[in-house]
Design a binder for these strands. Structure first.
Length: 806
RNA sequence: GCGGAUAUGGCGGAAUUGGCAGACGCGCUAGAUUUAGAUUCUAGUGUCCUUGUGACGUGAAGGUUCGAAUCCUUUUAUCCGCACCA
């Protein structure tokens, strides 16, 4: 009878649960390690093989760190507000709560079947009022600090989506909703907005504090899009009370400005347009407003625009510049106005060519017939800037602008404030009351959580408001003086609950605070955070924003939440394509666990390749992983399920070197999350162990410990068979002896002109002369050296001898 | 268009500092065990040829170096992100 995964995995999962083996308790004085997974949205489809990849990596780290003496926090929870549940509710007329909780139970069962060492007493669920009480509390603190405000803004209105809802910019793809593909229109609406832009600089600068993939940092920097430049003020000729503020990163080219361009949507356009141009401007504005963003960018190779009839005065030389409108200038970026320098900006150059506007060179270099010159060079035709290069000219121009009140240094961001309201039922209600007298107030903190009304009557309101608007007994409120008001019917976006959950895990049942100061100080920050690359910007930016806000309030101890971030790669279908139902290449982890066991799945997913890379699923590879699980078992256990006689205290020394090498490599590789190479080293060790007669019990215990982070069930069972009663979870990690790795003789490579010609045993640390002499004396080497002049001999001790001949 | 990443046998991948390219696994070939299959065990497995003590070989082309998968320049392909951001 061999290894029976069904019986053994169930046995140890039960043991861990009954003994609360992984319960984490803050122990001041003991070093801690916080290993975190991005918590899942519990979809109706259940777990996907992609989920266990990241989960196994953090779990292996958690188990490894426990054995190294760390007090480990390794929690799991559910990000359970979200669209599918709401859609289900609208379709079936049931409350999404029951459906969501069912899905959570299913997910939890699936996750538990994989043997992860989570402390389930710390499970969080974003839809639990005890949890979202604190999501609402954080919103209220933002409101009190002026970082949550209502504004009439252009939003993405999707009237056919969910009975009409507003979606965030990032949820719009090619003018359609990311989910469902419904058309999106830009309309003004009153929305809750969070002032994430107030944190723009710190969100960029503090990226230097964390150990994250460079690609993610770069994406965040680009998303925030900080650009340093200048605001320059242009007076409108003949209307001296009117001023146009432009933003430029190239104030050094101000002498080369030949016209000014405004976004067609600007109010100022109507004020300055001359009567003769009114009709043309009006027509252009209408045409532009009808074009979607897509048409204004992707599809638009050709520049369009209309002259307003008005002129602006260049503050630096008094030149009269025509004012145009064009949709290549975006109202949403900067001030919606640019000074056009066609000689040194490609867009301006194209526009000037098309409308035959003057192109004035102010920098030496390039050919202005061909296109704009954007490189560096000496300035010309620029009065006090002549002879300077770009950087020096910028500084000097800024000084001039400031001294003359014509402009100043300015920083601009691409990042916009975060539209925070959704017109949905299944989200955290925004705890705000709008009174009939026009005032607005927060739901008092001691009345939180403001819970969702428990109703099956969830229908679109039809007005653009959420289904909550239909529920009169919830919406209508009266204060102690009988004053009537209406609750805000907006709910928060799904990002809200996930913007602080790692803090809640540190103290998940606290009713006085979102977490105690002691718990936060002990467990913060998260040491390792693993999740998909799709969250590189949004989740991670919002999470950092909230964390920093709480840091400023003095309620969390670190400026950044996640010290090390790793994006696991995708597991592709066996056809190298992304797994999807329509392609029929989806693998269900339940089937793998049933057939091969969780240990095999875990081992295979970690052996497939580097954690960060996307790798195709391979049934044969999975089978190979299973073979190795059995191979380890058989190494130690005989056909009668007893420990083999070969495992004893006898050590003939044959495994010394490879064992110590293995401990060294596996320890270092686990530390770097290089599980695939750690596993390959363990395979090498097992292969060697099969070749010898005596298996020292010390080494076998070391082996079982080293496989335990990856294959915990089989490791527990083997540990028990080795005669131990306690779980392997808290056993000390094996150590290695550096002296066992070195031998008296080393093999040195002898090259002639860089080509390997011999491999010679030499005494360790043989000096240069000895090594050279031995190499030259070698018979085979001589075949390549005789009759040739030896120019040089390079000796790298204990490694290589390279003989250069001619 | 801009930015980032990747490219190594039939496949997944390894090579921590510029020092034996292809560890480990899959697959394949041959043999052993087995009634047979599965399993297990042993040996072999980059390409080429004149089978050697050989030549070539890390997307392509150059370069630096005694020595390059690794460093530099150019280039191609794929993936990801952004995209008239002034």
């Amino acid at each position: 009878m061999g290894y029976d995964h069904l019986e053994i995995e169930k046995k140890w999962q039960r043991y861990w649960q009954q003994n609360k083996t992984f319960k984490a308790t803050a122990k001041p004085g003991q070093k801690k390690y916080y290993a975190l997974d991005m918590f899942p949205y519990p979809s109706g489809q259940g777990l996907h093989v992609g989920h266990p990849e990241g989960y196994t990596a953090t779990d292996a780290m958690a188990r490894f760190k426990r054995m190294q003496g760390y007090n480990v926090l390794h929690p799991m929870g559910f990000d359970a507000f979200g669209l599918p549940a709401e859609q289900y509710a609208l379709k079936t007329g049931h409350n999404p709560k029951g459906f969501t909780n069912q899905n959570i139970d299913h997910f939890r069962d699936q996750i538990q079947s994989l043997g992860f060492s989570y402390d389930w007493d710390r499970e969080v669920n974003t839809t639990d009022p005890k949890y979202y009480k604190w999501t609402q509390w954080i919103f209220e603190q933002l409101y009190k600090k002026g970082l949550a405000y209502e504004d009439e803004i252009m939003v993405n209105w999707a009237p056919d989506f969910m009975g009409g809802t507003v979606v965030a910019n990032e949820e719009v793809i090619d003018g359609k909703t990311e989910r469902g593909g419904y058309p999106v229109y830009r309309v003004p609406m009153r929305q809750w907005v969070l002032k994430i832009t107030a944190y723009a600089d710190r969100l960029i600068d503090d990226l230097d504090l964390v150990d994250w993939p460079e690609s993610v940092k770069e994406m965040q920097r680009n998303w925030i899009g900080r650009s340093v430049g200048a605001a320059v003020y242009f007076k409108v000729a003949g209307q001296e009370d009117k001023q146009i503020e432009v933003f430029t990163t190239r104030c050094d080219t101000l002498f080369g400005a030949s016209y000014v361009t405004l976004a067609p949507e600007l109010d100022l356009v109507d004020e300055i347009t001359t009567p003769e141009q009114k009709a043309a401007v009006k027509a252009y504005q209408e045409a532009a407003s009808r074009r979607s963003d897509l048409e204004r960018t992707d599809l638009n190779k050709d520049k369009t625009g209309v002259f307003t009839g008005a002129y602006a005065i260049n503050p630096v030389n008094g030149a009269k510049l025509p004012i145009w409108i064009s949709d290549y200038v975006l109202a949403s970026y900067g001030t919606g106005a640019v000074m056009a320098v066609p000689a040194h900006d490609e867009r301006d150059w194209e526009f000037a060519k098309k409308f035959d506007l003057p192109i004035k060179r102010v920098l030496v270099g390039g050919d202005l017939i061909e296109g704009a010159y954007t490189g560096d060079g000496e300035h010309v035709n620029s009065a006090f800037l002549d002879g300077l290069t770009i950087e020096a000219a910028k500084t000097k121009m800024l000084e001039w602008l400031e001294a003359n009140g014509a402009g100043q240094k300015k920083v601009n961001y691409r990042l916009r404030d975060w539209i925070f309201s959704r017109q949905r039922y299944w989200g955290e209600p925004i705890p705000v009351i709008h009174w009939d007298d026009g005032t607005t107030s927060l739901v008092p903190e001691d009345e939180l959580p403001l819970t969702l009304p428990d109703t099956d009557d969830i229908k679109p309101s039809g007005t653009g408001e959420s289904p909550l608007a239909n529920i009169e007994e919830w919406v209508n409120v009266y204060d102690e003086n009988g004053r009537h008001g209406l609750r805000d019917t907006n709910t928060m976006p799904q990002w809200a609950g996930s913007s602080w959950y790692w803090l809640r895990y540190t103290d998940p049942t606290n009713e006085q605070a979102f977490a105690s100061k002691e718990a936060l100080e002990y467990w913060s920050p998260v040491d390792l955070y693993v999740g998909g690359a799709e969250h590189a910007v949004l989740h991670l930016l919002y999470a950092r924003f909230w964390h920093k806000f709480l840091y400023d309030l003095g309620v969390v101890p670190t400026p950044e939440p996640f010290m090390k971030l790793v994006n696991q790669g995708m597991i592709l279908g066996s056809n190298h394509e992304k797994m999807s139902k329509s392609k029929g290449n989806v693998v269900n982890p339940d089937d793998i666990v049933a057939e091969y066991g969780a240990d095999t799945l875990r081992l295979y997913e970690m052996f497939m390749g580097p954690l960060e890379e996307s790798v195709p699923w391979d049934e044969k590879g999975l089978h190979g992983a299973n073979k190795w699980v059995h191979r380890v078992w058989r190494l130690l256990i005989d056909e009668n399920n007893h420990l083999r006689d070969r495992v004893s205290t006898i050590n003939d020394g044959k495994l010394d070197k490879v064992y110590h090498q293995t401990v060294k490599k596996v320890t270092a590789d686990y530390e770097r999350l290089h599980f695939n190479t750690a596993i390959s080293q363990l395979m090498v060790f097992v292969n060697e162990a099969y070749k010898v007669d005596d298996l020292p019990v010390e080494y076998m215990e070391g082996l079982v410990k080293m496989i335990s982070p990856l294959m915990p069930h089989v490791a527990e069972e083997l540990w028990q068979k080795l005669g131990h009663e306690e779980t392997i979870t808290y056993q000390a990690w094996p150590t290695y002896d550096e002296s066992k790795l070195v031998e008296a003789n080393v093999e040195m490579i002898v090259q002639v002109n860089g080509k390997v010609r011999a491999k010679l045993k030499m005494p360790k640390d043989a000096d240069q002369a000895t090594a050279e002499q031995m190499a030259l004396a070698d018979e085979h080497v001589q075949k390549f050296t005789t009759g040739k002049e030896i120019k040089k001999v390079i000796v790298i001790p204990n490694r290589i001898v390279n003989i250069v001949v001619k």
